[in-house]
Simulated assay, not measured.
Amino acid sequence: MFRIVVLCTLFVIVHSQVTSVSQCVVNPADLPIHQYVHGCLTPPCLLPQGQDIVVDVVFRAPHTIRRMRTLAKALITIFGSTTEINYPLGNNEVTCNFLTNTYCPVLAGEVVQYTLKMFIETWFPADFPVTVEFRVVDDKEDAIWCIRVPISVIASTAARENKINSTAIAED
């Protein structure tokens, strides 16, 4: 009985905040059961430079999965032409290390909770709209799920303060 109460509570908490996303175009795959980009319900998500974007994802394993990798691709459109840029996730690419309710191997049909993190580099241009596709693949490179999220990187607090200070000094 206690287990059912815990699972129901977890279900309500997880489903209380959902970020609107769309299916991937570059690498089409199923959408997960649930996704929430921290601090963003309706894209474009405003993400500060020098911080992690954190995405909580719930998905059902389509088959037994021994290893998973998370891949990110930024899609930048300039003058009507879209450029795809693979965005390295470093250690965050190892999906199995960030499962929150289970561990690998994941069994077929198992509902998995995962926390994805991607660092927004300070060199990434601020106030520039970008679409990011996050995709999780198994050890055979078959897509397990994929989400497409419009974002806009905003200047970090330190960068904004430097800009304000530079402007004040220039005006003196």
Rank of each mutant, 00 (worst) to 15 (best):
C96R: 03
Q49D: 00
T102R: 09
V111F: 10
E84K: 05
A61S: 14
F59Q: 01
L47V: 10
F124G: 12
V136P: 00
R148W: 03
A108T: 11
R60I: 08
N91Y: 09
D127E: 11
V54M: 03
I53E: 10
A74F: 15
A143H: 06
I78K: 13
T82V: 13
I78G: 02
E84V: 15
V130H: 09
C104R: 09
G80M: 05
A126K: 07
D138L: 01
W123V: 15
T83R: 14
I78E: 13
R60H: 03
N92L: 06
T131V: 15
G80L: 05
V112N: 11
I147H: 03
G50W: 03
A74G: 14
G80K: 01
Y87S: 12
I151F: 12
C96L: 00
P43N: 07
L116C: 04
G109V: 04
G39V: 05
I144P: 09
Y103C: 14
Q49C: 09
K140E: 11
T70R: 02
Q51W: 04
A72F: 00
G39E: 09
Q49F: 06
W145T: 02
L71A: 07
V137T: 03
P43S: 06
D139G: 07
L47M: 05
I53C: 08
Q113P: 06
D138P: 01
R60W: 01
L47N: 02
E121M: 10
F59P: 01
T122N: 15
K140I: 04
C96E: 13
I151N: 14
V55I: 12
I120Q: 01
T42N: 10
T42L: 14
L75E: 15
I76T: 15
N86V: 15
C96P: 07
E84I: 15
L46Q: 14
L107G: 08
T64W: 01
D138T: 04
Y103L: 13
A108Y: 00
P44C: 09
E93S: 11
G50A: 03
E121D: 15
I147N: 06
R148P: 09
V54E: 06
T64Y: 01
V132L: 09
I85D: 00
T122M: 12
L75S: 11
I53M: 13
F128D: 04
D52V: 01
F98P: 04
A143M: 06
A74V: 07
T83L: 14
I85Y: 10
P62R: 04
G109S: 05
Y87T: 11
I76E: 13
K73N: 11
R135I: 09
E84Q: 12
M68T: 05
K73T: 15
I154P: 10
D142R: 07
R66H: 15
F134R: 01
Q49M: 08
T82Y: 00
R60L: 03
E93T: 08
Y87I: 00
V136H: 00
Y103Q: 13
C146S: 02
L75D: 11
